[in-house]
Design a binder for these strands. Structure first.
Length: 370
RNA sequence: CCAGGGGUGGCGGAGUGGACAAACGCACCUGGCUGUAAACCAGGCGGCCUUGAGCCUGCGGGGGUUCGAAUCCCUCCCCCUGGACCA
């Protein structure tokens, strides 16, 4: 099943493989969606890692949709909690930025549908009915536990609107008729709720081609690591697993991530400063980026090793990691490769946004911290 | 609406009339050491400059008392805990 391979490659988690197989086997129309909050500038994770999978999905014949979650962003106090600014940013910047990213990595942006949350909800009784149905089929405790999907902790005293966010996110999936719900691993809780309530929905359940109720399949891509050293180091594998989501690249920590608009100099500075212990492969941001982003993006990379220049392709991912572990790749050589390769990908995007009209909005968003 | 607790720098958290530009910790920045980063050591960390026992801004907002306020009073806003109200 080549289709399935395309859909699942480089993913961190698929819920569940069996469901996906049966969906494909029965020749159902595959409908994908990935949702984004509207906040600051796009970074590599949002802009490239997500687009990379969209490219794969398109190759597999999947209908792809990007959901611009303006209401969710409003609920989550993004962009100063100003819905007008959020909407404007979604339409004028996010859409454009995603299109550019998609095109630059070889996906077809024309065939991706962009959907604005507020438009989906407008005059849509069925949506709100589904929202209520989802809420009826889950518990307050569960919703409370799931608010980390918005990057928040319950203890910070959330307002009630924030508790509406998870069921809304789940309702989005059903309202859009999505059978392939795609997101970073941090969105797991919402997707699991969606799967748990799916068969109980009456008003707008997700159906297969034979009109049977089905659960949406959750596809979770890897979250690129932030460039900083973890708060605790050294750290055990188990401890790391627990805090991994907190260590993802985050636009609220500009030095932890690379934005799709960063100049070559900015990229260089950030990556050279990145945490990168020799021979460490468990938590090593530059190695992580190279393996999980650059390799799939570029197909192959050349790196200086003590055994001369070596070429690694996607199939040699494990070899690259083990070579680093053996110490035949020096951290600085790894970083230099990463910088060069990353710039190959980002330069056209960088140039595209040099136009004055974009610079204005980019500079505005640069000042935004959340 | 009531009662109690609270709002201090990027974060956590001291300070409760003068020695506070505000302890301490974390984060961050610079330099040294490493073929990267980390660790470690030294320094910095509100702003300004003519770098000074200098000036300005500053402890939720506004007003006041005082020679002097983050610290006292008034008032408003917001957060937390419980209660009341409503059913």
């Amino acid at each position: 099943m080549d289709k399935i391979h395309l859909i699942t490659k480089n993913l961190e988690e698929v819920l569940t493989e069996e469901d996906l197989e049966s969906l494909v086997r029965n020749k159902n129309k595959l409908v994908h969606y990935i949702g984004f909050e509207i906040s600051g500038l796009l970074h590599l994770g949002t802009g490239l890692a997500s687009s990379l999978k969209i490219r794969d999905f398109q190759k597999a014949g999947v209908k792809c949709q990007i959901f611009l979650a303006d209401w969710h962003s409003y609920i989550n106090d993004k962009l100063g909690g100003d819905l007008k600014v959020i909407k404007e940013t979604a339409v004028k910047y996010y859409k454009e930025a995603f299109k550019v990213c998609l095109e630059n990595i070889g996906a077809n942006s024309q065939k991706v549908d962009f959907i604005l949350g507020s438009e989906l909800y407008h005059h849509n009784d069925l949506y709100w009915l589904t929202f209520i149905e989802i809420s009826k089929n889950t518990t307050l405790a569960r919703i409370q536990r799931s608010i980390d999907i918005m990057g928040r902790k319950l203890k910070e005293g959330v307002d009630f609107a924030k508790l509406c966010y998870p069921p809304m996110q789940v309702a989005d999936i059903f309202a859009l008729g999505v059978n392939l719900a795609h997101a970073g691993l941090d969105q797991r809780k919402a997707h699991v709720i969606a799967r748990d309530v799916a068969l109980n929905l009456k008003f707008k359940p997700l159906l297969d081609k034979n009109k049977n109720k089905i659960k949406p399949i959750a596809l979770h891509h890897h979250l690129l690591l932030g460039l900083y050293k973890p708060p605790k180091w050294p750290i055990t594998k188990e401890e790391l697993k627990e805090i991994l989501i907190d260590l993802k690249m985050s636009k609220s920590k500009p030095e932890s991530c690379v934005f799709i608009h960063d100049s070559r100099e900015e990229i260089e500075t950030k990556i050279l400063k990145a945490f990168c212990p020799p021979q460490e492969t468990l938590f090593n941001p530059p190695l992580d980026w190279l393996v999980n982003l650059i390799l799939p993006l570029r197909g192959e990379v050349k790196i200086k090793t003590t055994e001369g220049i070596k070429t690694y392709n996607e199939a040699k991912k494990k070899e690259l990691i083990s070579d680093y572990e053996k110490g035949i790749i020096h951290p600085l050589d790894l970083k230099e490769t990463l910088i060069n390769e990353l710039w190959q990908v980002l330069e056209p995007i960088y140039k595209h946004f040099q136009k004055e009209s974009f610079q204005k909005i980019i500079n505005k968003l640069k000042l935004v911290q959340k």
